[in-house]
Design a protein around this nucleic acid. Sequence first.
DNA 1: CCTAATTAATAAAATATTTAATTAACTACT
DNA 2: AGTAGTTAATTAAATATTTTATTAATTAGG
Lengths: 412, 412
Amino acid sequence: MTGHTFFEDLRNGEITGVAYKNLQLKKQILSWFVNTGNATIADLSRELNASVPKVGELVNELITDGLVKDYGKIEAAAGRRPNVYGLEPDSFFFVGVDIKQYYVNLGLGDFRNNLVRTQEKVPFHLKNTPEALNRLCDIISEFIETSGKGKGKRKVLGIGVNLSGRINFKSGYSYSFFHFQEDPLSKVIEQRLGISTFLENDSRAVAYGEFSSGSYTNEKNAFFINLEHGIGMGMLLNGQLYYGKSGFAGDIGHIPVFENEILCHCGKKGCLETEASGAALTRIFIQRIREGASSILAKRFPNPGDIQLEDILEAVKQEDTLAIELIAQIGEKLGRGIAILINILNPELVILGGALASTGDYIMLPIRSAINKYSLTLVNNDTRLVLSRKGEQAGMSGACLLVRDRLLALID
Amino acid sequence: MTGHTFFEDLRNGEITGVAYKNLQLKKQILSWFVNTGNATIADLSRELNASVPKVGELVNELITDGLVKDYGKIEAAAGRRPNVYGLEPDSFFFVGVDIKQYYVNLGLGDFRNNLVRTQEKVPFHLKNTPEALNRLCDIISEFIETSGKGKGKRKVLGIGVNLSGRINFKSGYSYSFFHFQEDPLSKVIEQRLGISTFLENDSRAVAYGEFSSGSYTNEKNAFFINLEHGIGMGMLLNGQLYYGKSGFAGDIGHIPVFENEILCHCGKKGCLETEASGAALTRIFIQRIREGASSILAKRFPNPGDIQLEDILEAVKQEDTLAIELIAQIGEKLGRGIAILINILNPELVILGGALASTGDYIMLPIRSAINKYSLTLVNNDTRLVLSRKGEQAGMSGACLLVRDRLLALID
DNA sequence: CCTAATTAATAAAATATTTAATTAACTACT
DNA sequence: AGTAGTTAATTAAATATTTTATTAATTAGG
């Protein structure tokens, strides 16, 4: 009993000795609730190798701090029924901000990974200007202000922001957007809004959201592949989000797999993205229309150059032959890229998400057959390939989860 | 003070409460010595967040068990000089067995990662027969018997065996060699020799040896690429040896990067190994000779089919133009494969080893230029590419280290 | 060469933690 | 319905650990 709250202790780097050990054990208790769910004092004592009185004491302190809740007694085969404890969802909240090219999704997540409120597709144009950053802060601020519940504002403990491009989540610097000031972007937002803020690369955040969602919490080695205009990826390796040396890891879009002459926007030739991305799909589709191919989009767009990725994906749903043919081609090539990943990293799960994934089996089946064709059977037998079921939710959810887990110092 | 030795406690799964915590702290102390070197009680107390008297007590117990040694006083700027403690190299030893196609290397490693005795190139033919396994056990047994020092046999605490092919190091099963009995191979050897035995995939073990050696202990994300007839790889990701779901990870040889029609022994086409391996080098070299190309080997081998990989590598050293030309070609293609790895995993270090690496700059420069050509500059700037400096030693050393660290339960 | 300053190691005192014992709560069986 | 058997939670006793104080060892400076 230090007299300080959990969060005060957490922020205090000077803490040593007994207080340090208690803090560590509290983190382990919270971590257990986060990863495994509710538990009894006896469970925690057994799993964390601490005595029952000690665990009881710390759980009570966490209850006092409002982080943990007594969920009452549970059924038991025999004997006195234990009380179960778990996270207090209503104590604190997190805001997840998922920034896309032309809009922003905001979500308010509780302590147990439920989005209690969302505000989707708030108009916003992602440009590297102070005005855009200002507008972004206003949007977030407005969202927090209006997130009251009953009597007042809900206590927001942290903000997670997903941005595309290179991010150093430890320093809080963004290198692709909003890097026109000295201070790291996370600090700038933090000062504007007065709430701890963490940045993350968008694909990585979405991946974290997917991996932490219900069905996939057991997987230790998994990829989330984000199929939009470009190809992004988030990786979970040995149960941890993988960054590589400087946070560039997951750049699957620019692996050299083709012997083509198409110049990629990265400056190289032969990148996977040149033939197997949303951008490639759009380019090839327009080209085929210009060559006279028939499609429901051919009539609708007098100028084929106006056709957007969304139109093509819509056409797939309306069973347009050309769109379906091309998405299958893209799938086959993507499958070759994924086969490389599978051979190298022997994962247990690959989740496909992003706009292209909404075409379902049309893209999934060619990918699967290419994986079978190009990767070792022994290895790819281990790998489940699934479509994302969370869609846009995963971005907000992942952002909330990342702030939560970083604030609790459950991950580093 | 439990009255039991460290190793007895370690093997006792039932251990709980205070004894458990002491054991954990002892592991942390040993781990510190292994990873960071000698330390004073004060250092350990600070770093491991335990009190000075507690650390002192446990260090003394470890000294009693013979695992730790008092290295005396060290210089200090001011004040009473502290005693430094570290691993006792002469207490226990480990045997590393590196099995190649036609020979075996054996090494006796001490507690501090020094090979105190080696026996290299012991003739052995790796075949999947009980006779070969028998012979292997005899070789190991003979090595241990003759590893006496002064008065008697040195105490060998564990044996590490590197085998090519798929290995499950946790269960001890080998799936490519010596799998003709029910019991896991590690258990079979263990029972024959009466000493704890661990198996590991050869490339992974060599990688561990390389990563743990002097200069590279700070790297958290590194690859070791083993260039022999095939291409093997061991990966360190987030500071841990990476296995993937079933231990197949690192299979870089069979990633589909070529659009060729060469049938790989894995049954697929377009594998990296079909054009960028020692086997490919041999095949192409022989073919070129048959087509009339000139080389110093052309005269020496009336039948070009007799030319072996070793002969070609020797020819490179003698500056044979054809050999040099082809090794550069192989390098360029390998570089493309490595570029893929770099883009995906953003490592800080890539070590090239195996027979082909002995050609030095002849293979290194084309690899480096292909990496620059095919991977994103921003990413490959992070990556140092180096040649293995340990050569055959790394295999034995890695095997010893893996047993040591697994027996001490420093890694899982 | 002695003293102040500094750090290590040890010893004693103060806490903290665990273990064991007790009490409480509940089920199933006679 | 009462009782034996189980498991939880609490309390008290026994340990263990940390903290603080003391002593030891060493350097630098007067």
